[in-house]
């Protein structure tokens, strides 16, 4: 089963760019990605630019409405994701705990819909 890991955190909680803490976090991300790849479970994963770069769009009554900003203004922002192929939720939660964001933000784990079932 494929699981999507959505990485949320508040900007204040994140290590500041350029500090040793930031470098340590990036090293931990790299190590996690390498481990997931080595385990053969990696299906994808990227970091996202900040929410100030987000644009949201919806079509209502045939009209396109474009808005500056994320879908919802929340304290914790979606900052990146991983897509991993794992046998069950317990395994997924074990991986989730190793993602650096878990230490200062929240990792939401969602199974990906399988349309072949």
């Amino acid at each position: 089963m494929q699981y999507m890991f959505l990485l949320y955190s508040t900007p204040e909680a994140e290590p500041t760019y350029g500090t040793p803490e930031f470098q340590a976090m990036m090293a931990d991300f790299a190590a996690f990605s390498e481990k997931a790849a080595a385990d053969g479970v990696m299906r994808g994963g990227e970091g996202l630019q900040g929410v100030d770069t987000a644009t949201s769009l919806r079509v209502r009554g045939g009209k396109v409405e474009t808005m500056d900003g994320p879908f919802a203004e929340t304290r914790e922002h979606l900052g990146g994701y991983y897509l991993l192929d794992l046998p069950d939720l317990d395994t997924a939660l074990r991986y989730a705990a190793q993602i650096p964001v878990a230490a200062f933000g929240t990792v939401e784990v969602r199974p990906v819909m399988d349309y072949n079932l």
Partner: peptide, 9 residues
């Protein structure tokens, strides 16, 4: 749906 295994941890 979330794939909670029917297993002893």
């Amino acid at each position: 749906d979330a794939g909670i295994a029917y297993a002893v941890p």
